[in-house]
């Protein structure tokens, strides 16, 4: 919340500045929101504690209530149960090493709640909680230079000393050459190394594919987790769903959806 607003607006992958301008004053741990519908039986799936061991986890337990029910009414009846479950989950995550904050919200609208908490905690990413057996290799799908600094901060923050292989992956845009793609990824690679990831743990992969979602989901199969950006809602996303959701559905493993820079209030 102390970043300069212009940071991700530039065309250059100007990473490294985030830490310099004040992120370090707060905490180096990237904030990751983990939303769970606790009363519907959702819990952090296996592998999540390991994946987020270096994160500051905002563990959001939420319960969606129909409009004919007052939120207070639901809290009165279910609050205690939900809170104790959430406490258990938080313990599990903390044992693996993460800083955990828990929030329990009764809401009529899940999106409003998730969005509010992303703001409040300035979350770098939201986890789509799926299970994984281990966390040895991560696919980082990068679309372009805009906002890439946030991906770098997240990946470096989570996996710098974790002995995890990182594969940087880029699907070429129309009119973009293979060289453009490679030099983009190499720039990101340099930034990651500066931030403490081992050079020989980073691979780069540029591909020319028609459907980037299919390509990402396909590549993801040989990895344990995916990091990708969020997409602006549009007609296409309205009809087919958000790309990150589609990838998560097919991949069936955990997906960290990197959030856009939220405008300062």
């Amino acid at each position: 919340m102390t970043e300069t607003p212009a940071e991700d607006g530039g065309e250059q992958p100007e990473v490294g500045e985030g830490a310099a301008t004040g992120e370090g004053a707060e905490t180096d741990r990237p904030s990751v929101l983990v939303p769970l519908e606790v009363l519907e039986g959702e819990s952090p799936p296996p592998g999540t504690p390991e994946l987020l061991a270096n994160a500051r986890v905002v563990l959001l337990g939420y319960h969606v209530i129909p409009e004919q029910t007052a939120a207070e009414q639901a809290r009165e009846q279910f609050g205690e149960t939900a809170m104790s479950k959430l406490g258990e989950f938080a313990d599990r995550l903390a044992e693996a090493g993460s800083d955990v904050e828990t929030r329990l919200v009764f809401t009529h609208d899940k999106e409003t709640t998730i969005d509010r908490l992303i703001y409040e905690y300035d979350c770098l990413a939201v986890l789509v909680p799926n299970s994984t057996e281990r966390v040895d290799s991560v696919l980082v799908a990068l679309r372009g230079t805009i906002g890439v600094g946030r991906n770098v901060r997240l990946v470096a923050g989570l996996f710098a000393d974790a002995g995890v292989d990182v594969t940087l992956y880029h699907v070429l845009d129309e009119g973009e050459s293979l060289d453009d793609g490679e030099s983009f990824l190499n720039g990101v690679k340099t930034d990651l190394v500066e931030r403490g990831i081992d050079l020989d743990r980073i691979e780069t992969l540029v591909e020319d594919a028609d459907a980037s979602i299919d390509a990402i989901a396909g590549r993801a199969e040989s990895h344990d987790a995916v990091v990708m950006g969020e997409t602006d809602p549009s007609v296409t996303t309205f009809v087919f769903g958000m790309p990150s959701e589609l990838v998560a559905e097919r991949f069936l493993g955990p997906v960290l959806v990197v959030q856009r820079e939220r405008p300062e209030e």
Partner: peptide
């Protein structure tokens, strides 16, 4: 340390402010 307001994370608002 796992409760909602861990004192060592100064940045975010606490539950009461939120």
């Amino acid at each position: 340390m796992t409760d909602s307001e861990s004192p060592d994370s100064p940045g975010p608002p606490t539950a009461t402010e939120s």
